[in-house]
């Protein structure tokens, strides 16, 4: 289980990375933590001609508060978020989720940006950052642009990123003091990818974003469920049946068919995330 041959270059900064991409012959690919790409290379599921390593670009490792947002460099590692060493826009949601994302040895290398670009609907950051309404800042050969995360994730393992483009940073609005959240990951063992993953963020009265992972090709912002959560004050157990109905509405609006078994599981994780956010 060894990769096909490739060439390798480490980029000093973003401009250098783009230049390396521009001059590469054949398929070039960026690598950050390598915690997703590494297995794919070893399994020969990915066979690029050249890897451009973003791991030595200091600017990507930065995290800072800017007004009412926190801006994370794409190279920030899961472990740094877990350890609470960085500004936290999420009132504890991101560190808690990070601690159950893969395993420590993987969190020491894997990055926020790599996770968003890989765009696995079962992964933590694509879902949680969608609930937090994050924006990604991109740099490409043609210049810079920014995209709301909801518009960035186009399909299963597919994003709006052009091959040359790099996620430079991710900016996340800081939750207000009254904001609440609930998060539930259903997985078969700690560190495994989720089988169902739900996060509910209550930004303020009537303003709720509830996101469900694993049900569709991309993380789903559940409109009917969010509206339901925005309309109730506090948690009541009998809301569960309404949640299941609202979830069905959202899924069929998204054109997603799930069987009764998955529906039951997704409804349970959604309800639990909502309960924690509202209780």
């Amino acid at each position: 289980m060894k990769p096909a041959p490739f060439d390798y270059a480490a980029a000093r900064d973003l401009d250098h990375a783009l230049a390396l991409f521009g001059e590469a012959e054949g398929e070039a690919k960026y690598i950050a933590g390598g915690q997703t790409l590494g297995p794919m290379l070893n399994l020969r599921l990915s066979q690029p001609d050249r890897l451009i390593d973003l791991g030595r670009i200091d600017a990507l490792r930065d995290a800072r508060s800017e007004g009412d947002r926190v801006v994370f460099g794409a190279g920030v590692r899961h472990a740094e978020i877990e350890d609470g060493l960085l500004p936290d826009p999420s009132g504890g949601l991101m560190p808690q989720a990070a601690a159950r994302l893969a395993y420590r040895a993987i969190r020491n290398r894997g990055t926020l940006g790599g996770s968003l670009v890989h765009a696995d609907p079962a992964a933590e950051w694509p879902n949680i950052l969608l609930a937090l309404d994050a924006t990604v800042h991109l740099r490409g050969l043609a210049g810079a642009r920014e995209v709301r995360l909801g518009d960035f994730q186009l399909g299963y393992l597919t994003t709006d990123l052009a091959p040359d483009e790099i996620v430079a940073s991710i900016s996340i609005p800081v939750l207000g003091p009254t904001a609440r959240w609930g998060y539930h990951k259903l997985c078969r063992q700690p560190g495994e990818f989720a089988q169902s993953l739900a996060v509910t963020v209550v930004f303020g009265p009537g303003r709720v974003r509830c996101v469900l992972g694993c049900a569709g090709p991309v993380p789903l912002l559940l409109k009917a469920v969010s509206a339901l959560a925005g309309g109730v004050s506090g948690w009541r157990d009998d809301v569960r049946t309404e949640i299941a109905a609202a979830l069905e509405t959202d899924l069929s609006a998204a054109g997603i068919a799930v069987d009764a078994v998955d529906l039951r599981a997704h409804a349970a994780t959604v309800a639990r995330s909502m309960k924690d956010a509202l209780a």
Binding site: M1, K2, Y8, A10, P39, N42, R109
Partner: peptide, 28 residues
């Protein structure tokens, strides 16, 4: 050799990582 089992755990700059999905060139 795909990051799951941990048999290849080693320390990179003092932190445990997976040796099987870390490139030797990246340890420069």
């Amino acid at each position: 050799e795909h990051g799951v089992c941990g048999a290849c755990t080693l320390l990179l700059d003092g932190e445990p990582v997976r040796g099987c999905i870390t490139l030797a060139v990246a340890a420069e």
